[in-house]
Design a protein around this nucleic acid. Sequence first.
DNA 1: TTACTTTTGCAACAGTGTTGCATATAGACA
DNA 2: TGTCTATATGCAACACTGTTGCAAAAGTAA
Lengths: 138, 138
Amino acid sequence: MTRYSEIKKILKSHKLRVTDGRVDTLEFFLRQAKTLSLKDLEKEFKNSDRVTLYRTLSSFTEHGVLHKIPDDSGHATYGLCHDTCSSEDHSHDHMHFKCNECGTIECLEQNIPVVKIPGYHVKEANLILKGICKTCAA
Amino acid sequence: MTRYSEIKKILKSHKLRVTDGRVDTLEFFLRQAKTLSLKDLEKEFKNSDRVTLYRTLSSFTEHGVLHKIPDDSGHATYGLCHDTCSSEDHSHDHMHFKCNECGTIECLEQNIPVVKIPGYHVKEANLILKGICKTCAA
DNA sequence: TTACTTTTGCAACAGTGTTGCATATAGACA
DNA sequence: TGTCTATATGCAACACTGTTGCAAAAGTAA
Ligand SMILES: [Mn+2]
Ligand SMILES: [Mn+2]
Ligand SMILES: [Zn+2]
Ligand SMILES: [Zn+2]
């Protein structure tokens, strides 16, 4: 199976129309294998419209191809979902790591510990660790 | 001791000049006893300049009167520090809770569990829980 | 009171995110 | 394959938070 047909398959399985821009964007995510921001896409696809890239990220997130990683920096970052995610079931319990040196944000394997607080209904948890990543620490 | 002299004392102990705006802002934080954003201050102090309020939050944060609470919504929120915080020592390990209904962000007593990841240097952790707060759940 | 330092108010700008709308295109179906 | 309809795209424009520069005002210490 070619890379292109694989990407098309992913898009279709998430009920997304196959367009050139979406194929390129998804291919970029798969090739980079790391989280990306709108800015990253803008740099990569200089001829593409900013708003279209923005909407690509939105629809990917909505359809379970990507998940939005909460960040206080003002730069929204996106990471690939696992195969299990769809428009319907789209949940993530893993934590994230932001490197103070290279700036990359990584999805970690580890899940966020369950926290219970008397009187509260906890429905969601976001844990972001900061420090020096494996690559930069080496 | 009057409220005003108490507030003056707090400002001075954090090496901040006592100005009308700072007294009002700190008084508001103490009275509300909850986290506040720049927007909240703008609503309360309609005659004040937005930039001045912004800088008040900045200097308070810098001098250990407030701590900035990371939020992905784009609204930076601030909470009072404990008495122990100063310009020098200004650390927080507690988690925060954001209510999906009333929108308030609370500082929780509980500290964030320590997470270790092989190969990484974790220096900071931010855990934000979301759901329904005690007041809204009742 | 004076002299020095910091804060304030105003204007202006930067950056991200977001919407509306006309046009182009993908996917479905005859 | 050609036609139709819903969706995606490109462009312009806007909303909003955060941020800086600078001159005038105010705080503090001598
Ligand atoms: Mn992730
Ligand atoms: Mn707090
Ligand atoms: Zn790194
Ligand atoms: Zn609530």
